[in-house]
Design a protein around this nucleic acid. Sequence first.
DNA 1: GCCGTTTTCGGCCCGACTGTTTTCAGTCG
Length: 573
Amino acid sequence: MENGTYVARLEEIADLLQVTGANPFRVRAFQKAARVIDGMAEDLDTVLAEGEVTAVDGIGKSIAEDLRQIRERGSCDLLDELRASLPDGITDLLRVQGLGPKKVKALYEELGIGDLDALEARASEGRIAGLKGFGARTEEKILKEVERLRRTAGRTPLAEAWPHAERLLGLLREVSGVERAEIAGSLRRGRETVGDLDFVVASREPGPVMEAFATDGDVEEVVARGDTKTTIRLSGGLSADVRVVPPEVFGATLHHFTGSKEHNVAIRSRALKRGLRVSEWGVFRRDGEDGGDATDGELVACATEEDIFAAVGLPFIPPELREDRGEIGAAEEDRLPELVTLEDIVADLHMHTTASDGRHSVARMAEAARDRGLKRIAITDHSRSLTVANGLDARRLRAQMEEIDAYNAGDPAVRVLKGLEVDILEDGALDMDDDVLAALDWVVGSVHQWMGQDPQTMTERLLRAIGSGFLHALGHPTGRLVGRRDGFTFDVDAVFDACADAGVALEVNASPWRVDLDDRLIQRALERDRLMLTINTDAHSTAELGQMHFGVRMARRGGCPRSRVVNAQDESP
DNA sequence: GCCGTTTTCGGCCCGACTGTTTTCAGTCG
Ligand SMILES: Nc1nc2c(ncn2[C@H]2C[C@H](O)[C@@H](COP(=O)(O)OP(=O)(O)OP(=O)(O)O)O2)c(=O)[nH]1
Ligand SMILES: [Mg+2]
Ligand SMILES: [Mg+2]
Ligand SMILES: [Zn+2]
């Protein structure tokens, strides 16, 4: 069973429990267990089989038993009981902005509302206003939010969110009085999808910042506007939060707004044990014996994130690791990995030119790479069978190889490797003649077609390609497209082991639509000592050479150090 | 429900914003 199935069951339990008015901490226990399993590099089935599941942080005896039942029959006693006692659609009500456990419970108990249709109907009839805690504005908002929920998708893919974030960041930085403005939230942590955009601004005058944000041309609605925080919704449905604070507390607020929520909770709990209190305003000493009210505790730190961490006895933890997946313990013991950085990347080993489906020539790509400070690139156009991308046959590839030799003969600042993104065909054969493959400097093998194969066939196919002796890297290894298409499944251990044995690197494709491998698979790859990664843009234009940072961020999320990245080494390739 | 260099019981992060309230609960970030 896939980890995602366990996650979905636990989340359903948490949702249903909330509506029954259960202890919020009990609800949080199920949410935490779901989150931990979602972030696991291993298959939960393997962990369950080895009987060590209660060793996982957040999973105790009770949830372990639920998981075993879910494995056996897809559900567990607790979930069965909850489902039997509540309507199917009630958890949808929790997705409506402004409705939480208390309000949903009231709507169900007072008016029998058990799904979105009923909610909409009762609101239209004016039956909701007048319920205790509900007024006319709440009823109005419910109608609006139900409609919006039906219309909009869930999380926004990185590739769609990023341009909006860059534009809004630029806008914020131009407001007079702004000393600093940074992207925070899940985007700063390098997640592949985001729920919204988050910004932190340092300024002594919040007014003009809020005003600029709220009156931007792309704003559809100002959702909330207070003294330090404004939330807007853009025309495409994406929301954005901005938090404006005085420059001296910027570090504390940036840390707070970068999250993750769970990381913040863990940091704050740790602080409490040390007689401190952490909020977005800083780290404070807790006065008074029994915890006290503590509002007047002495300020200990607030200027920089480093100061915040230091105040709670930790070294700086990079944003990409702040997911409460063990980073605090690792920091405590000084065993945080030294993560690869964008500056470490000296080569880009996957890109296309006009020869296949790229927009620019070999020389243009090389010059653009030089301007970005790279030392080497590999030109890896598509192979013949990818006809939609004008893939190269042996003759055209040979011609390109001559072109590259000629380019390199001019002793350019960027050395160009003769490469190919060769299609791994249906049966695992490579879509190019062996003698040509052998003459190339760098060969990326990728699956683009016949992606619907069953896992076993796909595994055998990949193993054959890896075993060919011609590949240097496996390109976008799962084929997923964020928010659009799941990757194909295969036996990860078998394929990764084979790559390690054959000296084939696994790509972290930096295209924001792919970021493939993802953080969990990167972490799993790194468990094998000899297995290397290669982070490449897969650029189809000179501009897309700027995508490298997405891949680097994902590699960092997976805990990847420079030493494990082929193209972060000074020597070849 | 989980967890333990202050606890195996009794805690579990903390503040901003809104709407409905007459002093604050609920939701969200
Ligand atoms: N201390 C604390 N901080 C929170 C809480 N919820 C959110 N935050 C902080 C950490 C989050 O990263 C940050 C922004 O909140 P978001 O809801 O936008 O979450 P985030 O950006 O992490 O994920 P997203 O992709 O937007 O769903 O605010 C909370 O309950 N407690
Ligand atoms: Mg966010
Ligand atoms: Mg947010
Ligand atoms: Zn490709």
